[in-house]
Design a protein around this nucleic acid. Sequence first.
DNA 1: CAGTATCCGCAGAGATACTG
DNA 2: CAGTATCTCTGCGGATACTG
Lengths: 129, 129
Amino acid sequence: MDAGHMDVSGRCQRVAPVLARIGDKWAVLVVETLADGPVRFNALKREIGVISQRMLTFTLRGLERDGLVTRTVYPTVPPRVEYSLTPLGQSLLEPIGHLARWAHEHAEEMAAARLAFDAETVPEAEAAE
Amino acid sequence: MDAGHMDVSGRCQRVAPVLARIGDKWAVLVVETLADGPVRFNALKREIGVISQRMLTFTLRGLERDGLVTRTVYPTVPPRVEYSLTPLGQSLLEPIGHLARWAHEHAEEMAAARLAFDAETVPEAEAAE
DNA sequence: CAGTATCCGCAGAGATACTG
DNA sequence: CAGTATCTCTGCGGATACTG
């Protein structure tokens, strides 16, 4: 874990898997939803809304594998499975909070930049026609 | 930009595009490489190492569109194009720095969790055979 | 040097149906 | 309720070749 991760420009690439997790379309959403406490599978599904079972299961597996969430099964007659954040998962809330703050504060700037860029690009495509 | 982004659990989804950027396989890498100052296209390519032209161009376009980097063309005989971070792009260095810190500090924990999870899962698959 | 254009393979992701 | 299994389609991402 100390070497063999410098394949890019000399910067430590241990961050790459974390970036991948953060970039995961659903992972952050699930973590955020779990922030307030344990949530059952279908409740999670309902909260997120548009996610498919397959993706939710897949995402939860990944998070569980990375030690970010725990899966607790209550062997009741209607099966009841609760997911909750591990301390590691909770600690992740901090950096993604920073990210969310940045996103919130600069969303307009980015949107404006996009409009400006598209205004510069799209008309050319139309004019070429 | 004030409404119509609450499709998930009531949390503002303006962060989603930012998350997508961060999650972009190459975007963060490019931004980090640009942190020290303007870099030319091929230098960028060489620094990153394994990226294809297509992806580098694509990534740079996206970053430019989002107002994170600027593209400056010097009309010399051998074309010279420099990319550099905008103030917005530089401000992004902060949250991803937090993220990198977290990644660095918890990489071992995550790796251990993975090993434990796989040790729990893989043998079952082998035992079933 | 700095791209653009084209083709292709593979993984991500949704829909659906079935099980314990 | 909480998944697993299968099928499929989209689009990311790489390799290659060509252009200004």
